[in-house]
Design a protein around this nucleic acid. Structure first.
Lengths: 138, 138
DNA sequence: GTATTTGCAAAGTTTTTGCACGTGG
DNA sequence: CCACGTGCAAAAACTTTGCAAATAC
């Protein structure tokens, strides 16, 4: 049994096709809104409902199998929690997303937050701004 | 004529009681959602509508008279742009908001983002996590 | 006077909820 | 078997929009 399946069971939840489909979609899409996940699953199978996508994303997030960040002023986006934890730099102009490893962010922000006794959720961090390409054009 | 009034005029906009009331509410409340601004203005006067609050907040934000950040996973919050630009540390547990001066954030994050040629909007930055008090309890 | 702004009501978007049916263990 | 999960439909929360009336200048 794979890791995520074990994690579901251990926490008293069931292994359903919908949960498998949602997890697969999130892993495939990289950074996806609930709606995009729904569309991706639908492309493979009719066997899902939007409500279920929301409920499932919430559950997988709680279990730590996926994570979410806010890459626009509006919608949350989910991504796989496999691989390294990372923060995001989002370009307001071209919408490009740059991922930055947790270690890099931690070493940069660490001293600052330590002064306030604050323990950041580095993987949830999103920094908005302008990327090099767009700054050049402007 | 005060600074904000001048700024409105220069940009070809009109000085209305509603705009004055919204700006005053944002400055009084510190960090407020559109709904909270609406409620605050309503407490003083009937002379405003929720649509107008949304339109006015958007306008004042564009003009740089106020700024917004995302202090919860859900609602945007607006704050005065008078005073120094600052980022926010938000405690997920007790919802406390700690403001951090731009200079501090810039010196911490500067080297990191420079490696990606990225120019952050420091005043929009929100870092979620646990504050010292809540971390202690847990 | 007239272009901008507001109020109102309606619709749009995104997310949540209640409940009967279906299903994994 | 039966507690948990899903689909469906309806509602909730939040935000935007069209248009006629009001108003800043």
């Amino acid at each position: 049994m794979s890791d995520w399946q074990q994690r579901l069971r251990e926490s008293g939840h069931r292994l359903t096709p919908q949960r498998e489909l949602v997890l697969a979609a999130v892993e495939k899409l990289g950074h996806a809104t609930p709606d995009a996940v729904y569309a991706e699953v639908r492309a493979h199978s009719e066997a899902i409902n939007l409500s279920t996508v929301y409920r499932t994303l919430e559950l997988l997030d709680e279990l730590g199998l996926i994570r979410h960040a806010h890459l626009s002023d509006r919608a949350p986006t989910y991504h796989a929690a496999t691989g390294h934890e990372h923060a995001h730099l989002v370009c307001r102009s071209c919408k490009k997303v740059i991922s930055v490893g947790r270690a890099d962010v931690e070493s940069a922000l660490g001293p600052l937050v330590a002064r306030h006794g604050f323990a950041p959720d580095y993987g949830h961090l999103t920094v908005f701004g302008l990327c090099a390409d767009c700054a050049e054009q402007a």
